[in-house]
Simulated scan of single mutants.
Amino acid sequence: MSKKIGVIGSGFIAEGLAKLLHDSPKYTLTKVLTRTDTKERTDYFMPEYLTNDLEELIESSDLIVESSGDTIYAADTINRIFEAGIPVVTMNAEFQATVGSYFVDKGLLTEAEGDQPGVLAMLHEEVTTMGFKPLVYGNIKGFLNHTPTLEDMTYWGNRSGISLDMVTSFTDGTKVQIEQTLVANGLGATIAQDDLLGPAYDDTLTGGIELAKKAKEIGAPISDYLISPTLKPGVFIAAEINDNQHAALRYYKMGEGPYYVLERPYHLCHFEILRTIDRVLNGGGVLLNNSENPTISTTTITKRDLKAGESIKKGIGSFDVRGIAVKIKEHPNHVPIGLMFNATLKRDVPAGTELTFDDVELPDSLALEAWKSIKEKALKS
């Protein structure tokens, strides 16, 4: 009997997954939870799957995939799903890197393969099984502009078929900072500096080795990225291995060492979520989460001068703020950008400033309470 899979989200990635599940002989697509008006979603491939009722989704599903990209909403829905005892697979690094740690002991929660964090976790399993010791968990970023214009982002969003806030968060670097926050916490790494290093290299070998040298200086694995307009949008791990394997790796054309770069030159988002669904339902457990004791967060930096009384509807993908990775202990009062929903400025804040809880007022939410719990634990550790 096929397993019943529900989906939360009806955007680009979530709809792509729903189509795969609909066509799969192994799984049955049950319902797709959306916050949009189901009667007006004539654009959706099969509108009859859409529902606004979380309970209907829960009652019909053996496993649920959350892909809303919304921290506040995901916290509320996943909390209720765990009360019902159902496992959750996410493609929502925004949720995971902000408050995912609060939920790791409340049910089976794992990030999926497909986006860079999940693919790095899969590659981590592969290379450590072979005896490599990771020094760098690397993402690849093709382009970066901290303050893109609305005109440019509207053009690229329409051209790519993705939402304005999503394309903006890709362009201003928020997305890669969030992803590498999750990778650092989930795979036991740290960061080399606030905002990451992000050096420009057009080959992963040279760039990966340079980052590996930095990790050795620090004395711990690091989570970071390379900027290159020519590299494929994949991931890589720079690692070392015992000296007695260097000759074999030279024979296998992996270079002279002592650092080696193993890469996965693609990630296919919703296509790969099926592998993580298989993993969970076959008893494979968690691929990647934000860990119970995170040390890294993604803080909020202003892109422009903000005035007291201004409201920011959503921080991630906005033209008001962007996110950068930081160490929690070094930024104890920062506001994670994943919590920046319907935020009101308490006072004037100039461009380029990190927002703290003294600067903004946030509505009450489970996600906010979860962050307070995470922060208190992190600062005591």
Rank of each mutant, 00 (worst) to 15 (best):
residue 218 I to K: 01
residue 179 E to S: 05
residue 343 A to Q: 05
residue 3 K to R: 07
residue 224 D to A: 08
residue 297 S to V: 08
residue 73 Y to D: 02
residue 50 L to K: 04
residue 164 L to T: 01
residue 168 T to V: 03
residue 285 G to A: 08
residue 71 T to L: 04
residue 129 T to F: 14
residue 50 L to Y: 07
residue 31 K to C: 01
residue 270 H to F: 15
residue 179 E to K: 08
residue 67 S to G: 15
residue 9 G to Y: 13
residue 218 I to M: 06
residue 320 D to N: 11
residue 184 A to K: 10
residue 58 I to N: 00
residue 29 L to K: 10
residue 89 V to N: 06
residue 201 Y to R: 06
residue 91 M to V: 12
residue 339 L to G: 00
residue 42 T to L: 05
residue 284 G to M: 10
residue 70 D to I: 02
residue 97 A to T: 03
residue 364 D to M: 05
residue 52 N to I: 10
residue 88 V to K: 03
residue 119 V to K: 06
residue 298 T to F: 13
residue 199 P to N: 05
residue 164 L to C: 03
residue 72 I to R: 03
residue 308 A to N: 08
residue 268 L to Y: 12
residue 365 S to I: 07
residue 121 A to I: 03
residue 67 S to I: 10
residue 38 T to C: 09
residue 217 E to R: 11
residue 96 Q to D: 14
residue 344 T to E: 15
residue 33 L to P: 00
residue 245 Q to D: 04
residue 125 E to V: 00
residue 139 N to E: 10
residue 56 E to Y: 11
residue 32 V to R: 08
residue 305 D to K: 14
residue 112 A to I: 02
residue 225 Y to I: 09
residue 71 T to K: 03
residue 315 G to M: 03
residue 120 L to C: 01
residue 82 F to D: 02
residue 98 T to C: 04
residue 97 A to Q: 07
residue 75 A to Q: 12
residue 286 V to C: 10
residue 137 Y to F: 15
residue 56 E to D: 13
residue 324 I to Y: 07
